[in-house]
């Protein structure tokens, strides 16, 4: 019978040898611009790609990116398909029961409702059908709200199409993701109502047993916050309006 202490030491030893010898596999969704997306060269691109590569370089780690669908991204991290999640994932208590998070690398960012032009916020709140990506903070919030009906979609892209097709009255998602669509729709798509804050910021998810990896990344995130390079990256990808540290 192993005691918790020897187990912990064993896990540490394994994690240490693993972290040094192997490449660290970074999981992402690749469908949520500007956080992360697959560009036209079929490569992962976006804020989290740049940030992740920079973190790995500073930590002296050899990193490799793995794309995984959003709805299985946490189970497959736990199952060991990859070692971290960087996918615009807000730190929530529910998620923290299954995985652990580093400190946030994005400050709490606003969510917003986006709808076709002419949608009224009050009607939306009284009897609106609102889309959200499944397993997101936004889907959780909508499910709790009285009056609105939630329609869930597996990918972010489908939530936008649903608004355009008038299948739903609005979509609730991270404002930074919706901003591009609003800006380029020529007035067809608009934000409705005020910004909503549900998140404690976006962090990198790691397995709960991977304390060493979490501490390594925590240290370099702190370093990047202190020297201002993280803020530069945030402004580069999200624009001047985005909150920084």
């Amino acid at each position: 019978m192993k005691t918790p202490l020897t187990l912990a030491i064993g896990a540490l030893a394994f994690a240490a040898s693993g972290a040094l010898a192997d490449t660290v596999r970074m999981g992402s969704e690749g469908a949520y611009p500007p956080y992360n997306f697959i560009n036209d060269d079929n490569e992962l691109d976006g804020f989290e790609r740049d940030l992740g590569d920079e973190l790995c370089e500073r930590a002296g780690l050899d990193c490799e990116w793995v794309i995984n669908d959003w709805d299985t991204i946490i189970p497959n991290l736990v199952g060991g398909d990859y070692d971290t999640i960087m996918a615009g994932m807000a730190i929530t208590e529910a998620r923290a029961e299954t995985i652990s998070f580093t400190q946030e690398y994005l400050p709490p960012d606003p969510s917003a409702f986006m709808a076709l032009e002419g949608m009224n916020y009050d009607t939306l709140m009284e009897s609106g059908v609102i889309a959200a990506q499944s397993n997101t903070v936004q889907a959780g919030v909508l499910a709790e709200m009285d009056g609105v009906e939630l329609l869930e979609f597996p990918t972010p892209d489908e939530t936008i199409s649903a608004v355009r097709n008038q299948e739903v009255d609005a979509v609730l998602a991270d404002k930074a993701f919706l901003a591009d669509y609003v800006a380029e729709s020529g007035g067809e798509l608009v934000f409705v109502g005020d910004d909503q804050y549900f998140s404690d910021g976006v962090g990198m998810g790691v397995r709960q047993s991977d304390d060493e990896l979490r501490e390594t990344f925590d240290a370099v995130i702190t370093e990047m916050k202190e020297d201002g390079s993280l803020n530069e990256l945030i402004t580069e990808w999200f624009g001047e309006d985005m909150d920084t540290f």
């Binding site: 611009p33 036209d40 976006g46």
Partner: peptide, 19 residues
């Protein structure tokens, strides 16, 4: 589905919904 979905100017080849 992936290629047909609307692409914003974050992408090299932005286009509307071509699914």
């Amino acid at each position: 589905r992936e290629l047909g979905g609307a692409k914003t100017s974050r992408y090299t080849y932005p286009h509307p919904d071509w699914r």
